[in-house]
Computed example of a mutant assay.
Amino acid sequence: MTDASRAPVPHPDHDPGLRASDADREAVAEVLREAAGDGRIDLSELHERLERTFEAKTYGELAPLTADLPGHRAPTAPPPPPSVDQPMVLKTGAGDITQTGHWEVPRRISAHSRMGSVKIDFSQAVCRVPEVALEVKAGMGDVTIVVPHGWSVRTHGVRAHVGSVRNKAVEPPAPGAPTLEVTGSLALGEVLVRYPNRWEQWLRRRDGGA
């Protein structure tokens, strides 16, 4: 008999009206079969619950079928991806913050570094918006921005008092590629925009990236 602990672990607080899949129904059925094998429900109740399981259309119809069984709950819908309209805020005092890997790029990002460093790596991110607004504020800290080849980057909106702004991502933009608009201010810090370096490219290839 299949180990019932392999049934999907639910995410709480999701809409019970969402449609369930065949895999969801089969996961609940396996939990019920395991419960019958343990003597928690009898065979007639197992038969009745299995009928209800395979007739269920939504998560809300599946949930009651395992609610009284210890350690099991009906599967629920996975959480939705974060909205592109929800700003991302990266803020540090003297520490380091790195945003990298596979992530969803919002329309607006704020990167604040008083004495530490912030690194934002867009090279493997999913960007569904044509323009991204990035506001930087750096006291004595640094902000490093890594963009894929083909992106258009504008940094003329950054005010540097004693610090520096260096944009090394100056290749001609690819048609349809996103535009990154960088604004903000820095005192003694540095803002650096660049493409992925050889070490970052090697790590991506090692991890199976393109």
Score class of each variant (00 low, 15 high):
P175N: 14
P80S: 09
D142R: 13
A210R: 13
E135A: 06
Q99S: 04
K137Q: 14
R33L: 03
G139T: 09
A7C: 12
G141L: 03
G163E: 11
R107F: 00
M140C: 08
A4M: 02
D13T: 07
P148F: 10
V191T: 14
I41G: 04
V28I: 05
G189H: 03
R107G: 02
K137S: 10
S117I: 00
G208A: 04
V158I: 15
G184R: 06
M88H: 01
E34T: 10
M88L: 15
F54I: 08
T66E: 09
E190L: 05
A63I: 07
C127G: 05
D42V: 13
E190Y: 02
A77Y: 14
P87V: 06
I120R: 05
H47I: 03
E135V: 05
P82I: 03
P79W: 08
A23P: 01
R194H: 12
I41Q: 06
M115R: 04
G60P: 04
R198S: 13
A35K: 06
G17R: 13
F122I: 01
A56S: 13
A27R: 01
V105T: 14
F122W: 05
P70Q: 10
V158G: 09
A23E: 13
W199M: 01
K137R: 13
P196A: 08
S83K: 05
G184P: 02
V162Y: 04
V182N: 02
L46V: 11
D3Y: 04
A138R: 01
T100D: 14
P196E: 03
S123F: 08
A77H: 12
S152G: 09
V170D: 11
W151Q: 07
V84R: 11
Q201A: 13
E131T: 14
N167H: 13
S110I: 02
V182E: 02
W103Q: 07
F122N: 05
G208D: 09
G95A: 12
E30I: 02
T179R: 14
E200N: 07
V182G: 02
V182D: 01
V126T: 15
L134M: 03
A133S: 11
E45W: 06
A63Q: 15
H11I: 10
R114T: 15
G116D: 02
M1V: 06
P80Y: 01
T179S: 07
H149D: 14
P106H: 04
K119S: 11
V28E: 10
K91R: 08
R19I: 07
M115I: 00
V105R: 01
A23M: 02
L32T: 08
L90R: 01
Q99I: 00
S185H: 11
R154D: 15
G39Q: 10
G139D: 08
L180T: 05
V191S: 02
R159Q: 14
A111D: 06
R194I: 00
P12S: 12
E131F: 00
P75K: 09
W151N: 03
A7F: 02
V118P: 00
A77G: 06
R198K: 10
P8V: 05
L90I: 07
P10V: 06
H102E: 15
V193E: 04
M1Q: 07
R114W: 08
H72V: 07
M1R: 04
L65V: 10
D68F: 11
V31N: 00
A7Q: 06
Q124Y: 04
R33E: 12
V146T: 12
G116R: 00
E45R: 15
L203C: 08
K119V: 15
G176S: 11
A29R: 03
R40H: 13
A133K: 04
A63S: 14
